[in-house]
């Protein structure tokens, strides 16, 4: 079992981290990095509004929305997996993490299909500044998704033997995966929706 469901009053007052502090420092650093990237994107968008709006129309709103719902669903499974692991339900937790990972793989597949479609129509990294940001932002995010999938596999293996399960690995993996999810929510809003 990862830990008791109800924390002690002292712990409740001080608060508790989902996972390891070092992973949270990495997560917060990533949020700063992506935050700066989002602001730079908005500045370029402001300077080249016509180019950005014209280019944005070539993105698939359906693919973007589908990927958003796929990642949100994946996060749901991973959040439920952490709760199951805390109750000592290792098998259920492993099953839920696997579902979360499968939805992560679906995200990668949809993104690959979307990229192939864009590149097939001549919209490549060097087409203009909008597509440079599109491929860079979604590319760096995709790398995070792939890294997250590896982390979910590690968390799944960790749950194989509950008696020597290191709780921080499962919880830290979940915290990282949710960060990947929330970053996509911002990317979807800025690149696909706001015109």
């Amino acid at each position: 079992m990862l830990q008791d469901v109800a924390p002690s009053p002292a712990t409740a007052r001080a608060g508790r981290l989902l996972g390891d502090l070092n992973v949270w420092i990495f997560v917060l650093g990533d949020l700063v990095f992506f935050g700066a990237y989002f602001v730079i994107f908005m500045v370029y968008r402001h300077q080249e509004t016509a180019v950005f709006l014209a280019s944005q129309r070539h993105l698939s709103l359906i693919a973007g929305a589908l990927n958003t719902m796929v990642l949100l669903t994946s996060s749901r499974f991973v959040a439920l997996a952490v709760q199951a692991a805390r109750r000592g339900e290792s098998e259920r937790a492993r099953r839920l993490i696997s579902y979360g990972g499968l939805f992560g793989v679906a995200f990668v597949a949809i993104k690959a299909f979307e990229w192939a479609h864009e590149i097939g129509h001549g919209f490549t990294l060097v087409r203009n500044d909008f597509f440079m940001f599109y491929f860079m932002l979604t590319g760096v995010h995709l790398f995070h998704v792939l890294l997250g999938l590896v982390i979910l596999v590690v968390a799944n293996r960790e749950l194989r033997s509950p008696e020597r399960c290191r709780s921080w690995i499962v919880e830290s993996g979940a915290a990282y995966w949710h960060m990947v999810d929330l970053l996509w929510v911002v990317i979807f809003a800025l690149l696909y929706l706001v015109r």
């Binding site: 608060g15 989902l18 959040a79 929330l182």
Partner: peptide
Amino acid sequence: IIWNFMEVRDAPRWL
């Protein structure tokens, strides 16, 4: 996502 999935609602005040 931050408050519920990442459980920041239960996290230390600084976070």
